[in-house]
Design a protein around this nucleic acid. Sequence first.
DNA 1: AAAATAGTGTCTGTGAGACAGTATCGC
DNA 2: GCGATACTGTCTCACAGACACTATTTT
Lengths: 215, 215
Amino acid sequence: MTYDTPILTVDVVLLSLIEGTLHVGLVRRQADPYAGVLALPGGYIHTQTDQDTTDTARRVVADKAGLSNVFLEQLATVSGPDRDPRGWSATIVYYALVRGIPEQSPILWHALNDLVPLAFDHAALIRATMERLRSRGGWTTLPAFFLPPRFTFSELRGIYEAVLGQKLNDAAFRRKIDELGVISPIAGEKSKSTARPAQLYQLSSPEISLFNRAL
Amino acid sequence: MTYDTPILTVDVVLLSLIEGTLHVGLVRRQADPYAGVLALPGGYIHTQTDQDTTDTARRVVADKAGLSNVFLEQLATVSGPDRDPRGWSATIVYYALVRGIPEQSPILWHALNDLVPLAFDHAALIRATMERLRSRGGWTTLPAFFLPPRFTFSELRGIYEAVLGQKLNDAAFRRKIDELGVISPIAGEKSKSTARPAQLYQLSSPEISLFNRAL
DNA sequence: AAAATAGTGTCTGTGAGACAGTATCGC
DNA sequence: GCGATACTGTCTCACAGACACTATTTT
């Protein structure tokens, strides 16, 4: 006995920090269903070339957003008979953290606070990503992957505050991050135009690091 | 342009606490590929009946293990061209915590320490589940879902120790769990045959609860 | 009474938050 | 000098671990 095969896609929640607030990267759909509506960039698996769905996600980010070197991680797979009018569907959802501010690309960046209606259940997928981000942000170096390779302590604290949605104590944050040893200072300094320059740091590991305690 | 559709399945890592140690539930495969080899219970999505892949996983657990009322959560989706000899495949992996000791069922329970070779990449899926379990076990009530509805403090501490793989301080554990209010005492007591009876507790919420701090 | 497990009280060290104080830049 | 941001020192409070102590059962 055989069964109908579900529609299987890969969607990516593109996130970037633009002027201090988190933005999500969207595309306007060309074809039905939901033609003309904003949606997450996504696509089908190319079984000839993709070694896994992470490859698919990376290809989607490269082709539809023109971005490479993003931090990419699988969120979850969502499914159901009604989320796509064409039939029973499943989508493997990834989220990507874009380092710094992306320049020209076909991606439309929208602030997370006031989101317009999106195609499919993509609004819910973005909300789920934010929950994951807040959860992981409290005890990993994940928020640092929003930043360019070299950053100051203040910038690091700023992105943690943006991700966690709360102010953090400056001194305690420095002590904590310092003791964890997840970042290393660089000899050069940054010249903030208005005041005392700050020491530049880089991540000690190119991979995400876990803390033994929260925050 | 169309592409080959990947093979899409749902697999379940069944876990249970048997005599103080964690065991995984396996089935012996009837058909090729890997006929006769032990594997995780799994199956295809029934688009006629399943409302999502969680439904699929629940059906697999019911049909292949004869179990209901298990704690079920999605782990991840793994994929690739070589993990199934039939072609490019993806499997949505769930893990299920079986409350108490399962009696007669077609499932073969194996201790996690000495695992025999398994079909596909199922050994890796079990390892990934254990990592998730250890990670989530430190700051949620997840381990409690291995226990029957009514349990003692010692039993609760025991399952946390089994999941986390380390001894926990008795007094500190009681204080912590007590302050969090995630469990509630029941009027009846338990009569351990050998010594002082212990107060029975139940989870305050049927859902998994998160702690504000680890451990 | 002894053994065994359940549960509590108290001391101590660690670490986070608060916050004042010092350092180094542009103007 | 002043304003601004970067950093540091110190106090205090909360909490986890250690551990001795008490409680309640079976034998």
